[in-house]
Structure formats: C-alpha cells, structure tokens
C-alpha cells in the first residue's frame, strides 16, 4: 500500500497546469481530490511519474450563475456542493447526490471534477450530469473545448479527455421551475459505490410527465443514459404499468458485473427498483 516514486507539481493557474500536463505527457496525471487516484497508486495499479495537483488554482473553485446556466468549478468539493445555497435552490439534485457520496471526511476532499472526469462507472455524478444535460469545459494543449456529458464517457476509465487535457468546469443549463428530481442509490454501507443507482429529472404538466431524463450509475462500463425508459414515462400519469415498463427498459440496458455487491442479475434488478423509486419520488416533488 505504498505508491511508487513520483514528482509532485502544484501549478497556480490553469495555463500553468495545462502547460505542465502537455509537456509531461502521458506520464503525468492531474490530481483533484485524490480519492480515486491515490488508492490506485497505493495499489500500484496506477504509477504516474508526475502528479499535477490542481488544488492551488483558485479559478477552478466555486459555483456561480451565468444567465440561466450554473457553472461549477472542477475543484469544488462535494462538501461545498452540499453547502451551496445557489445549488440548493437551482439544482437540488446535486445536494441530494453529494450526500450519498462516500462519507463526510471524503466529501471535504473529493471534488465534482474528479468525480465526473475520472471515468469510474462507480462515481455518482456522471449519471446526474447526464440527466441535467451538463456540458464539460476542458482545457488542453489546443485551448478550451466543450463536450456534452452525454458524449463524454467511452468506457471504464475511458473518456473524451485527450492526454494533457483536464476538466475546468461543469455547466448546467437552467432547469424549469418546479421540476422533480431524485437520486436513488442502493449501497452496502456508507462509503460504498452503488450496487445500482438511478438519477431522474422530470417535469409535469397537468399531472402528466412532460419531460424526463434518466440515467443509471454503476451498472455498466459507464454511467448509462436511459433514453427509452424516459420516453416510456413521458406522457404518462405514472401508472403502475408504465412505471414497470420504464424499469424494465432501464434493466434492459444495464450490464453490471457480478461482484461483492451481488450477482449481475441482482444488480440489474436493483437498477429497475432504483429507477421506479426515483421516478416516483421525483413525480411527487414535481
């Protein structure tokens, strides 16, 4: 449980960090909260020669509103997400989700950027970002670019990030007033990854679901955007039959591995249960 030797860098600006990561190439890794990367290094499953710590860059921190958009700096911690009144008012699903990530000690270190950009299918925020249709602002050798969250994830630990690139901020488009939301997570204990989890954001009109976005955590190589399940729900009054069909559609795209959390069959079934419970709760809130 002792990592190999590495060189530690602590740039003071985004440009400095981008220059470092570009020049150091594939042997360098950006370090955010460190709660995924450092354990991997202790197990020597990751052996970067350089760590570029982003903690000394003030521009990467904080939550602000720009027009209808909410912009969250990549180095904003989960504890800061929980404490943000702006988020509580505008994007309350972030608070609900942050409260089921790990434990309070980790949430003081763990960051939104690390959670969404690491590409670990066990992370909770990617599914939430997909339901919010969030956009990721990325910086690298060629400057800045923006990638939609729904196109960012390519496989376990594989994302649209090119070597040398890192996440600067997350932009969440304005949510309609009175939207319903929920993040339902089944886990073995505090601190665990999800056995399965579901994020949902929906709106209602005259008792009927008008819009709906659904995504699943930790039942595939990446977070899964459950488009068909959402389509089934749109136009329904959340009767038992359409809810069951939506859950079944979510289960159909789930492909979890058998692990200590349970068999693939169990985890698939739990994905359906989480979808049903999340949708029911979001519907009540909308």
């Amino acid at each position: 449980m002792i990592p190999g030797a590495f060189t530690y860098h602590r740039p003071k600006s985004i440009d400095e960090a981008a220059a470092l990561l570009t020049s150091l190439g594939e042997e360098a890794r950006p370090l955010a909260g460190g709660h995924s990367l450092i354990p991997m290094m202790k197990l020597r499953m990751a052996t970067p020669e350089h760590l570029v710590d982003l903690a000394g860059i003030p521009e990467l921190k904080g939550v602000c509103q720009n027009g209808g958009d909410i912009i969250i700096g990549a180095m904003t911690t989960q504890a800061e997400l929980i404490a943000s009144e702006l988020l509580a008012a505008q994007v309350p699903i972030l608070r609900e989700t942050s409260l089921v990530i790990a434990d309070p000690q980790i949430r003081y270190c763990g960051t939104l950027g690390g959670n969404v950009a690491n590409g670990d299918p066990g992370n909770d925020m990617p599914a939430v970002m997909m339901t919010l249709d969030a956009r990721y602002t990325i910086v690298g050798e060629k400057g800045r670019r923006v990638i939609p969250s729904r196109e960012f994830y390519q496989g376990a630990y594989y994302t649209a990030l090119e070597p040398g690139e890192f996440l600067v901020s997350v932009t969440i488009p304005a949510l309609p007033d009175g939207h319903g939301f929920a993040y339902e997570k089944m886990k073995r204990k505090v601190g665990d990854y999800a056995t399965a989890a579901a994020a949902v954001v929906l709106t209602k009109k005259d008792g009927v679901i008008a819009t709906c976005a659904l995504a699943l955590t930790n039942v595939g190589d990446t977070a899964l955007f459950a488009e068909e399940a959402a389509q089934i729900l749109i136009g329904s009054r959340l009767d038992a039959a359409s809810l069951a069909r939506a859950a079944a559609a979510a289960e159909a795209i789930a492909a979890p591995a058998t692990d200590g959390r349970g068999t693939a069959a169990y985890r698939t079934s739990i994905a359906g249960v989480m979808v049903a419970r999340a949708v029911r709760r979001a519907f009540e809130r909308a």
Binding site: M186, R188, T195, R261, G262, T263, Y266, R267, S269
Partner: peptide, 8 residues
C-alpha cells in the same frame, strides 16, 4: 445475509 443474498 447481505442484501443480494436475501434478495436471491
């Protein structure tokens, strides 16, 4: 008796 075994 973890959850998945009870479920099973």
């Amino acid at each position: 008796h973890d959850a998945w075994r009870i479920w099973e």
